[in-house]
Design a protein around this nucleic acid. Structure first.
Lengths: 66, 66
DNA sequence: CTTCAATGTAAAATAAACTTTACAAATAAT
DNA sequence: ATTATTTGTAAAGTTTATTTTACATTGAAG
Protein backbone atom coordinates (compact mmCIF):
# COMPACT_ATOMS: atom_id res chain seq x y z
CA UNK A 1 0.00 0.00 0.00
CA UNK A 2 1.48 3.26 -1.16
CA UNK A 3 0.06 6.64 -0.27
CA UNK A 4 0.36 10.33 -1.08
CA UNK A 5 -0.42 11.69 2.33
CA UNK A 6 2.78 13.63 2.79
CA UNK A 7 2.35 15.39 -0.51
CA UNK A 8 -1.32 16.17 -0.03
CA UNK A 9 -0.67 17.46 3.45
CA UNK A 10 2.05 19.71 2.06
CA UNK A 11 -0.41 21.08 -0.48
CA UNK A 12 -2.72 22.15 2.32
CA UNK A 13 0.24 23.30 4.42
CA UNK A 14 -0.94 21.32 7.40
CA UNK A 15 1.22 20.01 10.19
CA UNK A 16 0.93 16.34 11.15
CA UNK A 17 -0.63 17.46 14.39
CA UNK A 18 -3.20 19.69 12.68
CA UNK A 19 -4.19 16.96 10.28
CA UNK A 20 -4.42 14.47 13.13
CA UNK A 21 -6.79 16.75 15.03
CA UNK A 22 -8.95 17.33 11.99
CA UNK A 23 -9.63 13.69 11.47
CA UNK A 24 -9.58 12.70 15.12
CA UNK A 25 -6.49 10.52 15.40
CA UNK A 26 -3.16 10.88 17.16
CA UNK A 27 -0.22 12.61 15.55
CA UNK A 28 1.75 9.37 15.61
CA UNK A 29 -0.93 7.70 13.56
CA UNK A 30 -0.45 10.27 10.83
CA UNK A 31 3.30 9.98 11.07
CA UNK A 32 3.21 6.18 10.88
CA UNK A 33 0.79 6.25 7.98
CA UNK A 34 2.98 8.63 6.03
CA UNK A 35 5.93 6.39 6.79
CA UNK A 36 3.98 3.46 5.38
CA UNK A 37 4.14 1.63 8.69
CA UNK A 38 0.54 0.57 8.48
CA UNK A 39 -2.62 0.73 6.44
CA UNK A 40 -5.45 2.80 7.88
CA UNK A 41 -9.05 1.70 8.22
CA UNK A 42 -11.52 2.64 5.51
CA UNK A 43 -13.07 5.15 7.90
CA UNK A 44 -9.77 7.01 8.15
CA UNK A 45 -9.16 6.78 4.43
CA UNK A 46 -12.55 8.36 3.77
CA UNK A 47 -11.89 11.16 6.23
CA UNK A 48 -8.53 11.87 4.65
CA UNK A 49 -10.11 11.85 1.21
CA UNK A 50 -12.63 14.34 2.53
CA UNK A 51 -9.99 16.67 3.96
CA UNK A 52 -7.87 16.53 0.83
CA UNK A 53 -10.81 16.71 -1.54
CA UNK A 54 -9.65 13.68 -3.49
CA UNK A 55 -11.00 10.16 -3.93
CA UNK A 56 -9.49 7.40 -1.82
CA UNK A 57 -7.99 5.85 -4.95
CA UNK A 58 -5.88 8.96 -5.45
CA UNK A 59 -4.51 8.79 -1.94
CA UNK A 60 -3.92 5.05 -1.56
CA UNK A 61 -2.88 2.43 -4.08
CA UNK A 62 -2.44 -1.32 -3.83
CA UNK A 63 0.95 -2.80 -4.65
CA UNK A 64 2.32 -6.16 -5.73
CA UNK A 65 1.33 -8.73 -3.13
CA UNK A 66 -1.32 -6.35 -1.86
CA UNK B 1 -20.03 3.31 8.16
CA UNK B 2 -22.64 2.12 5.73
CA UNK B 3 -21.88 -0.04 2.71
CA UNK B 4 -23.43 -1.42 -0.45
CA UNK B 5 -21.61 -4.70 -0.56
CA UNK B 6 -24.66 -6.91 -0.55
CA UNK B 7 -26.20 -5.06 -3.45
CA UNK B 8 -23.02 -4.94 -5.50
CA UNK B 9 -22.39 -8.60 -4.89
CA UNK B 10 -25.92 -9.36 -6.07
CA UNK B 11 -25.26 -7.41 -9.24
CA UNK B 12 -22.32 -9.67 -10.04
CA UNK B 13 -24.23 -12.73 -8.82
CA UNK B 14 -21.40 -13.78 -6.58
CA UNK B 15 -21.71 -15.90 -3.47
CA UNK B 16 -20.11 -14.65 -0.25
CA UNK B 17 -17.63 -17.45 -0.59
CA UNK B 18 -16.72 -16.62 -4.17
CA UNK B 19 -16.22 -12.96 -3.34
CA UNK B 20 -14.15 -13.90 -0.32
CA UNK B 21 -11.86 -16.06 -2.42
CA UNK B 22 -11.48 -13.36 -5.06
CA UNK B 23 -10.17 -10.83 -2.61
CA UNK B 24 -8.38 -13.27 -0.36
CA UNK B 25 -10.36 -13.16 2.86
CA UNK B 26 -12.56 -15.61 4.70
CA UNK B 27 -16.24 -15.94 3.96
CA UNK B 28 -17.07 -14.77 7.48
CA UNK B 29 -15.20 -11.57 6.85
CA UNK B 30 -17.49 -10.82 3.90
CA UNK B 31 -20.53 -11.80 5.88
CA UNK B 32 -19.56 -9.62 8.84
CA UNK B 33 -18.76 -6.68 6.59
CA UNK B 34 -22.12 -6.93 4.87
CA UNK B 35 -23.76 -7.10 8.27
CA UNK B 36 -21.92 -3.92 9.25
CA UNK B 37 -20.13 -5.68 12.08
CA UNK B 38 -16.85 -4.00 11.28
CA UNK B 39 -15.10 -1.62 8.98
CA UNK B 40 -12.58 -3.18 6.61
CA UNK B 41 -9.05 -1.97 6.07
CA UNK B 42 -8.32 0.35 3.18
CA UNK B 43 -6.59 -2.52 1.41
CA UNK B 44 -9.79 -4.55 1.43
CA UNK B 45 -11.90 -1.58 0.43
CA UNK B 46 -9.67 -1.01 -2.59
CA UNK B 47 -9.87 -4.66 -3.60
CA UNK B 48 -13.64 -4.61 -3.33
CA UNK B 49 -13.78 -1.42 -5.35
CA UNK B 50 -11.66 -3.16 -7.97
CA UNK B 51 -13.92 -6.22 -8.12
CA UNK B 52 -17.07 -4.15 -8.30
CA UNK B 53 -15.62 -1.59 -10.66
CA UNK B 54 -16.71 1.30 -8.48
CA UNK B 55 -14.82 3.86 -6.40
CA UNK B 56 -14.49 3.24 -2.68
CA UNK B 57 -16.77 6.21 -1.99
CA UNK B 58 -19.61 4.45 -3.79
CA UNK B 59 -19.20 1.34 -1.66
CA UNK B 60 -18.60 2.86 1.76
CA UNK B 61 -19.95 6.03 3.34
CA UNK B 62 -19.26 7.70 6.67
CA UNK B 63 -22.17 8.27 9.02
CA UNK B 64 -23.01 10.57 11.93
CA UNK B 65 -20.37 10.12 14.58
CA UNK B 66 -18.10 8.54 11.97
C1' DC C 1 24.49 29.10 19.18
C1' DT C 2 20.02 28.60 21.60
C1' DT C 3 15.06 28.13 21.20
C1' DC C 4 11.00 26.50 19.35
C1' DA C 5 8.07 24.00 16.18
C1' DA C 6 7.77 19.97 13.52
C1' DT C 7 8.99 15.41 12.83
C1' DG C 8 10.92 10.60 13.72
C1' DT C 9 10.72 6.81 16.59
C1' DA C 10 9.91 3.33 20.24
C1' DA C 11 7.69 0.52 23.92
C1' DA C 12 3.57 -0.86 26.12
C1' DA C 13 -1.14 -1.07 26.09
C1' DT C 14 -5.85 -1.36 24.06
C1' DA C 15 -9.05 -1.91 20.38
C1' DA C 16 -10.40 -3.53 16.17
C1' DA C 17 -9.81 -6.44 11.99
C1' DC C 18 -9.58 -10.98 10.43
C1' DT C 19 -9.10 -16.27 10.71
C1' DT C 20 -10.50 -20.79 11.97
C1' DT C 21 -13.73 -24.09 13.33
C1' DA C 22 -18.08 -25.27 13.85
C1' DC C 23 -22.97 -25.39 13.79
C1' DA C 24 -27.74 -23.59 12.93
C1' DA C 25 -31.13 -21.37 9.83
C1' DA C 26 -32.74 -20.29 5.31
C1' DT C 27 -33.31 -21.11 0.55
C1' DA C 28 -33.00 -23.55 -3.78
C1' DA C 29 -32.99 -27.78 -6.26
C1' DT C 30 -34.20 -32.51 -7.11
C1' DA D 1 -39.76 -34.23 1.88
C1' DT D 2 -34.75 -34.46 1.34
C1' DT D 3 -30.52 -32.82 0.01
C1' DA D 4 -27.24 -29.37 -1.16
C1' DT D 5 -25.94 -24.55 -1.28
C1' DT D 6 -25.88 -20.27 0.79
C1' DT D 7 -26.07 -17.49 4.61
C1' DG D 8 -26.11 -16.17 9.77
C1' DT D 9 -23.72 -16.40 13.84
C1' DA D 10 -20.54 -17.32 17.74
C1' DA D 11 -16.30 -18.28 20.45
C1' DA D 12 -11.41 -18.33 20.64
C1' DG D 13 -7.34 -16.95 18.76
C1' DT D 14 -3.88 -14.13 15.89
C1' DT D 15 -2.58 -10.10 13.70
C1' DT D 16 -2.71 -5.36 12.81
C1' DA D 17 -4.34 -0.58 13.75
C1' DT D 18 -4.29 3.06 16.98
C1' DT D 19 -3.28 5.45 21.47
C1' DT D 20 -0.44 7.14 25.07
C1' DT D 21 3.74 8.63 26.88
C1' DA D 22 8.03 9.92 26.20
C1' DC D 23 12.30 11.22 24.21
C1' DA D 24 15.56 12.22 20.35
C1' DT D 25 16.41 14.58 15.82
C1' DT D 26 15.80 18.07 12.42
C1' DG D 27 15.23 22.61 10.80
C1' DA D 28 13.87 27.22 10.94
C1' DA D 29 14.10 31.58 13.51
C1' DG D 30 15.79 34.73 16.66
Amino acid sequence: MRNNLRVERAVLRLTQDELARRIGVSRQTINAMEAGKYVPSTALALKLAQVFGKPVEQLFALEEGD
